[in-house]
Amino acid sequence: MAAAAAAGAGPEMVRGQVFDVGPRYTNLSYIGEGAYGMVCSAYDNVNKVRVAIKKISPFEHQTYCQRTLREIKILLRFRHENIIGINDIIRAPTIEQMKDVYIVQDLMETDLYKLLKTQHLSNDHICYFLYQILRGLKYIHSANVLHRDLKPSNLLLNTTCDLKICDFGLARVADPDHDHTGFLTEYVATRWYRAPEIMLNSKGYTKSIDIWSVGCILAEMLSNRPIFPGKHYLDQLNHILGILGSPSQEDLNCIINLKARNYLLSLPHKNKVPWNRLFPNADSKALDLLDKMLTFNPHKRIEVEQALAHPYLEQYYDPSDEPIAEAPFKFDMELDDLPKEKLKELIFEETARFQPGYRS
Rank of each mutant, 00 (worst) to 15 (best):
A195M: 08
T190I: 04
L289G: 05
N276L: 11
G169P: 07
S29W: 12
K138D: 09
D337A: 03
A92Q: 15
E322R: 14
K231R: 09
R359T: 09
H80F: 13
K73R: 06
I72S: 04
A6R: 05
S223D: 07
E349V: 03
I211L: 04
I86F: 00
S213G: 08
P229N: 09
P226S: 04
H141V: 07
P339V: 09
K207L: 04
I133D: 03
L76K: 12
L28D: 14
N158Y: 02
I243W: 11
T160M: 11
L116K: 12
T190R: 01
E109K: 01
S202C: 01
H232R: 04
K117I: 13
I255N: 01
A352Q: 07
Y187K: 04
A4C: 15
P11L: 01
Q97F: 11
R24G: 10
M293T: 11
L265F: 10
A4I: 15
Q119M: 11
F354W: 06
E303N: 15
E303C: 10
L278E: 09
L265A: 09
L335N: 13
L75M: 00
R194S: 00
I227D: 08
G245L: 02
A4S: 04
L346Y: 08
I324E: 13
I255L: 05
I74A: 05
H269P: 10
N262E: 03
H120R: 04
M38C: 12
I324N: 05
D177H: 07
D162L: 13
E303G: 04
Y358I: 02
S360Q: 02
A6D: 05
G136Y: 07
I56Q: 10
L184M: 00
K54I: 01
N262R: 11
K259W: 06
Y233R: 03
S246V: 12
P11A: 04
V173E: 00
S208I: 13
A92N: 15
I126R: 07
L294P: 04
F296H: 05
F129P: 07
T63E: 04
H120I: 14
C161I: 08
C40T: 15
P323N: 15
D291N: 03
M293R: 03
L287E: 06
D332E: 02
F348W: 11
T181N: 07
P226T: 01
C127K: 08
G22V: 00
K340F: 07
P339W: 08
K151V: 02
N123S: 06
A5V: 05
P176Q: 00
R172I: 03
A171R: 03
Y64V: 09
Y128V: 07
I240C: 09
L130A: 07
S248G: 11
R135I: 14
V21K: 10
H147I: 06
R277K: 01
L69Q: 01
I53Y: 10
P328C: 11
F331T: 14
G215R: 00
E71I: 07
L121E: 04
C216F: 01
D321K: 14
N87H: 09
Q315H: 03
R50W: 07
G85C: 00
P280T: 00
K330A: 13
H141L: 00
S153W: 03
A307G: 08
C166A: 14
V173A: 03
D251G: 03
L267W: 12
R301C: 03
D167P: 05
S29I: 03
Q355R: 07
P152I: 10
Q132Y: 08
D149K: 03
K231L: 11
V39K: 03
V21N: 07
L290S: 04
Y43M: 11
N201L: 10
R67H: 15
D44F: 08
Y102F: 01
K203M: 04
L252T: 10
N201T: 08
D337W: 15
T181D: 10
G242S: 06
F19M: 08
E60T: 15
H125V: 05
V101P: 08
G169T: 11
L287T: 12
A327W: 12
F19N: 03
Y43V: 12
T68K: 04
Q306L: 01
L116E: 06
Y139E: 09
F59V: 08
P274C: 10
C166V: 07
L346M: 01
D235L: 01
I347V: 10
S360N: 09
T185W: 03
D175S: 09
F296N: 04
K300L: 10
C127S: 00
G215Q: 01
K330P: 12
A352C: 13
I302G: 03
Q306R: 05
Y128K: 09
A325I: 14
K342Y: 10
G34C: 05
P268R: 11
I324K: 13
S142H: 14
H269D: 07
F19A: 04
T68A: 00
I209R: 01
L290Y: 02
E341H: 14
N253E: 04
L146G: 05
S284T: 01
F296L: 00
D111V: 01
M221F: 11
L234N: 10
M98E: 10
L267A: 11
N276S: 05
K114S: 05
K342L: 14
T110L: 06
A195E: 01
G242H: 07
L287I: 12
V273I: 14
L163A: 11
C40F: 04
Q66R: 04
N276Q: 08
R148T: 04
Q119F: 09
K54M: 00
Y30K: 08
T295G: 13
L244I: 13
S213W: 04
T295H: 11
H61W: 13
H147E: 04
E341P: 10
Y64W: 07
C254I: 07
L75N: 15
R225Y: 15
D332I: 14
E314I: 15
V46R: 12
E326T: 14
N276H: 12
D20C: 13
H299Y: 00
P93Q: 00
H239Q: 00
G85M: 12
Y128T: 11
C127W: 10
P226L: 02
A52F: 04
S29R: 01
D162Y: 01
F296V: 06
A143K: 12
N262M: 12
N87Q: 14
R15H: 13
S153T: 12
I83S: 13
S266F: 14
S57N: 13
K342P: 14
H180M: 07
M199Y: 09
G37Q: 04
R353L: 08
L234V: 06
R148L: 00
N257K: 02
I198Y: 06
F183A: 12
I140K: 02
Q66G: 08
S202H: 07
P339Y: 09
A327L: 14
I243R: 11
I126S: 05
K292H: 12
K259F: 03
L308I: 13
L115E: 09
V104I: 03
T26R: 10
L112C: 11
Y187P: 08
A195T: 01
S223L: 04
A260S: 01
R79T: 13
L252E: 10
E12N: 10
P176T: 00
L115D: 09
G215P: 01
A286T: 02
M108L: 03
D162N: 01
P58K: 15
F129E: 05
K55D: 07
E197Y: 02
A309T: 01
P274S: 03
I89H: 14
A35E: 03
P298A: 12
E109I: 12
P226A: 06
V188Q: 01
C40A: 15
R261H: 08
N276E: 06
E220R: 02
A6W: 09
K99P: 04
G10Q: 08
M293H: 03
Y30W: 15
P339A: 08
F329W: 14
G357I: 15
R50H: 12
G16S: 11
D20S: 09
H80R: 12
S246A: 10
I256D: 11
N276F: 13
I133K: 06
A3P: 14
L237C: 08
N45K: 02
P319W: 10
M221N: 07
S122N: 03
L121Q: 01
K285M: 12
Y316V: 08
A260I: 14
F331N: 11
A309L: 07
L222R: 03
S246W: 13
T160Y: 11
Y317W: 15
K207T: 03
I209Y: 02
D111S: 07
N276C: 12
A5Q: 05
D175Q: 04
H61M: 13
K272S: 11
Y263M: 07
K207F: 07
K164D: 10
K114E: 04
P280D: 11
G37K: 03
G32L: 04
L335S: 10
G16T: 13
K231S: 11
V49Y: 13
A9I: 13
I240D: 05
R261M: 08
C216G: 04
D332C: 14
A4G: 10
T118F: 12
K138V: 08
A42W: 14
N257R: 07
E345T: 14
I90E: 15
P319T: 01
P23E: 15
I324V: 12
D88I: 15
G22I: 12
V104S: 08
Y30E: 10
H147V: 04
Y131W: 15
V51P: 14
Y233M: 01
E305I: 14
V14G: 00
P152D: 04
P152G: 11
